[in-house]
Design a protein around this nucleic acid. Sequence first.
DNA 1: GTGGTCTAGACCACC
DNA 2: GTGGTCTAGACCACG
Lengths: 124, 124, 124, 124
Amino acid sequence: MIIIDYKDRRPIYEQVVERIEDLIVKGVLKEDTQLPSVRQLAMEISINPNTIQRAYSEMERSGSIYSVKGKGSFIAHTNKLMQSKKDQIFVTLKGLVKDATLVNIGVNEFIDVSKQYFLEMGGN
Amino acid sequence: MIIIDYKDRRPIYEQVVERIEDLIVKGVLKEDTQLPSVRQLAMEISINPNTIQRAYSEMERSGSIYSVKGKGSFIAHTNKLMQSKKDQIFVTLKGLVKDATLVNIGVNEFIDVSKQYFLEMGGN
Amino acid sequence: MIIIDYKDRRPIYEQVVERIEDLIVKGVLKEDTQLPSVRQLAMEISINPNTIQRAYSEMERSGSIYSVKGKGSFIAHTNKLMQSKKDQIFVTLKGLVKDATLVNIGVNEFIDVSKQYFLEMGGN
Amino acid sequence: MIIIDYKDRRPIYEQVVERIEDLIVKGVLKEDTQLPSVRQLAMEISINPNTIQRAYSEMERSGSIYSVKGKGSFIAHTNKLMQSKKDQIFVTLKGLVKDATLVNIGVNEFIDVSKQYFLEMGGN
DNA sequence: GTGGTCTAGACCACC
DNA sequence: GTGGTCTAGACCACG
């Protein structure tokens, strides 16, 4: 379910967070679903439980999941996550537009390519 | 000319590269212009010369500048840099569109916001 | 009657204690009233009996309730509980005032806000 | 400088955060002051470097300090910290007032005691 | 069994 | 030298 790319320069715990949050926004993991336990997921993908623990901690801090000692970890309300993901996308987009203007990419080219990419995505 | 943000989480040498390449794409630094020497730039912005050296090495490797032994470092042909910056932007855009579709941001919203951002940039 | 918030980070037995003591200070549960048995309450709120047992033990230790072998658990004299709750509040208040002085919150601001909060509570 | 209370139930890293943030709000540590390195502080108070690392990470996340790889950790702008501490105090106060009304502590008693505590603090 | 904290020791990127 | 990540193994509180 969760694949780690060891060539990726980002830390493992960050990749784990990304993979799980992806599953949430995709709707695969729904609210109050129980996540695999720290130890179990650690064994599954053959990494140290502490690393998973850290990933889970990050997600709890950011409000994506909630953990109960002795019970397990569960998916939280997804609204907040969706919104923060959207916000993040628009922030990135703003920076990208800024860079685009610097290298003389015009509005038209930018949105044409965007449309094209949307088409490709829809095709999947 | 070059400002380092120590609170920025990226390594300093990367920031130096970015600042210089920015000056190149903006046309401030033109082809075959000589860059300040490693030591000189290091002193100017109060940074370890090793860090500047690494920044210059990275840029030479990527083809943004070229070095002549005993003479110094110079701006290379800017076409290649411009093109790679453009490529990079479109790669990022592709990823962004992919993420956008996941959180149900439609084509229309996406390009409307893009246009808006372009307007804001033009206004500066 | 008793609601557990699994997203609350405090242990469940502590929440149970708080809820019951709340009912006591509010006057809902009066002196010598019998509490539901451990098993019964556990079933009611779908919780492990061990957890309820621990909550009851804590309250007996602190003197909020008393148990009679073979009969059950009962609300103790409420005076002591009321007094210890009051004491606790003033201890917290003292710490809070100390912190307030550190960040330059003056007496006036502090009591103005307090009055405001009392008004809001009264309005409920 | 920093004292750990092993009888305290809170985790060590949390105590470290509290102690340092206290020094910041008290004005002992000023903006851009360099903190002791992770390893050095760990040796000083005889705890594992990882624990200090975690404390520093928490503070960087919350914006109290900023860290630069290869250089060290530094005190950030203190405004944000002061504000969040103030906010925290008023949140606690609100909860305290709510509890006070439950046990029949009136506005007058509450603010009288508060004033008294402020006097005591001022006397230190 | 669960999550959370801590230690010990290692490696990396950066300066 | 610095901060940051990871592993291995231990212990605790909770259910």
